[in-house]
Amino acid sequence: MKVLCTAIAGAVLLILGILTSISVGASDIDASMVLKSFFEADSSKEQTIIRTLRLPRALVGALVGANLAVAGALMQAITRNSLASPQVFGVNAGASFFIVSAFVFFPNLSSVSLVCVAFIGAAMGGMAVYSFASGGGMTQVKLALAGMAVHFFLSSLTQGMIIFNEQAKDVLYWLVGSINGKTWAHVNMILPWSLFGLLVAAMFSRSVSILVLGENMAQGLGQRVYRIRILAGILVIILAGSSVAVAGPVGFVGLIIPHIVRRLVGGDYRRIIPFSALFGALLLVYADILARFIAYPFESPVGIVTAMIGAPFFLYLAKRGRNIKQ
């Protein structure tokens, strides 16, 4: 019952959020026009703005949020570590470092190859942190330290690039993560990966739940544990990598949402994964609305808002200082 209520409340809030996101912007468009555009399409300027600019932006926000939150949930499941998330795990940092390098050295890459570059980077960043943090059991502190170190390393390299190439400075803003000005092209860029990743994650959520029950119990299932982990890892790379390729490294969504969702619907991953998607989308859509008011009338990157919410949450988790209760 509680789960159903949460689902309905979440869905309603998400729809409201998207509608608000669509009605707020530089040109004055009232809510009735927004609603009208869904039922009576015409080619007026207002409707074109809604259709070609505001709607895709809200959708990209929702997709990126869902992707990152589910990626975070999966990571927390496979590592059984409450700090695991695309940000802490170096996945975002790896993907964005590779994309920045691509911007600088191959400025004419197509969007498809950009996504692939992001995948490679996400995989490398994630694997680096995983392998360095997992020696002798991955504890919270080791994960956080390894993540911080990899992040530090990659941002130093980025700085180095900037020294030799003033042009590279242009990507600094991109590095905060933003969905300002995203269009249908971006929706098309992320949508297939999102759909694939989210659906597969939902399908495998039962296996993921078994994984979380503890390796001892899952041991009986033998080879499967290993395979589930590999699959979850690939899903994380696809979900987080495609998000970074489209919106830059938006931080902390994957850290916060799974914890909130766990609080709301319990520890079963068959629920956690779809709800993470829903609430991740919710968070990013609302954060993006907030971002428009930080430096009004100019747009600020949404990554700033998520960082300001997420960093204190990180502090809260750190203070609690223990792993997810099994």
Partner: peptide, 8 residues
């Protein structure tokens, strides 16, 4: 910094 909507 502007997006297309602001430019419009």
């Amino acid at each position: 910094e502007m997006n297309l909507e602001q430019l419009v």
